[in-house]
């Protein structure tokens, strides 16, 4: 699928989560996400793994909402009060966050960084009218991605070199540890600048002169499935808005 479709789709999905706060809407959003997840064939365990790093944040947000929102008290424990409104709020917040993270994970798991950069460049193209250097930003992003592993390697090398000279990175408190990183950062920065200089020269030597008059090796092309995806997305969005508007009535009908 075209990365632009994925990018726009994810954006629309993320925004849609914030439009309404009601049970049926979240149910629809969750069903939609599960549907897309099944289509993407990304193993479920991978998706859940993406939740792990934000678990603490998630629990924290839920707790805060649960205890701090004022309203009808239903349960008291020591100085903490759980209110009906707080419970509802924390449930919405939790659901929203989980769907948010799963949704964006789905995009990053199914798209290579290069294609994502291409998509960002394509989507931001209209901004060129107000003199935003879109191509340059995209180029910077892709070069940064290319150099991350190289610089990581280099950090490792410098740390070992400094350790061989008796530097100590492990002991001491946080401030001391941060201070001990200076002998690593200084050479790292110097080498990064040197690399940047070399790279700029190499790019110039290969006729790089900005985005003007450039062709693309892998141009983005919409295929049939992209149009289908857009239609599905539109259906989802209308459904969601309708559901959001009339969710109160719907709940009443169901007798909840």
């Amino acid at each position: 699928m075209d990365p632009r479709t994925k990018l726009l789709g994810t954006l629309v999905y993320l925004v849609s989560l914030f439009l309404f706060a009601s049970l049926p809407v979240y149910a629809l959003a969750a069903v939609f996400l599960i549907f897309v997840m099944i289509l993407s064939k990304v193993p479920f365990s991978y998706m859940v793994k993406g939740l792990k790093p934000v678990l603490f944040f998630l629990v924290f947000t839920i707790m805060m909402n649960m205890f701090l929102v004022k309203g009808e008290v239903i349960w008291t424990f020591w100085k903490l009060q759980v209110t009906r409104e707080g419970l509802r709020q924390s449930f919405y917040m939790g659901a929203r966050l989980i769907l948010l993270i799963l949704g964006s994970n789905l995009m990053t798991l199914t798209t290579t960084p290069t294609r994502l950069t291409n998509a960002i460049e394509a989507v931001m193209k209209p901004l060129r009218l107000i003199k935003v250097p879109v191509h340059e930003i995209a180029m910077m992003m892709s070069i940064a991605l290319r150099f991350i592993p190289i610089l990581l390697d280099e950090t490792d090398k410098i740390m070992k070199a400094q350790m061989a000279r008796g530097a100590d990175f492990e002991s001491g408190n946080l401030i001391k540890k941060a201070k001990s990183m200076i002998p690593v950062l200084v050479p790292l920065f110097i080498s990064a600048f040197r690399r940047a200089n070399d790279l700029a020269m190499a790019m110039e030597a290969r006729c790089y002169h900005g985005g003007k008059g450039r062709t693309q090796m892998k141009p983005l092309k919409y295929a049939g499935r992209d149009y289908i995806a857009y239609v599905v997305l539109l259906l989802y969005l209308t459904g969601l808005i309708l559901l959001g508007k009339y969710s109160a009535e719907l709940l009443k009908l169901l007798g909840i």
Binding site: L145, R195, D198, A202, C207, Q216, M217, K218
Partner: peptide, 27 residues
């Protein structure tokens, strides 16, 4: 001289395509 500092693409074929892209060669 330095092989790391002159490869621009994230995969080999993209790097080789970088020069022709700049020259405006058709895809």
């Amino acid at each position: 001289q330095n092989p790391d500092n002159q490869i621009i693409g994230q995969i080999v074929e993209e790097d080789v395509g970088f020069g022709p892209e700049n020259m405006g060669v058709p895809t």
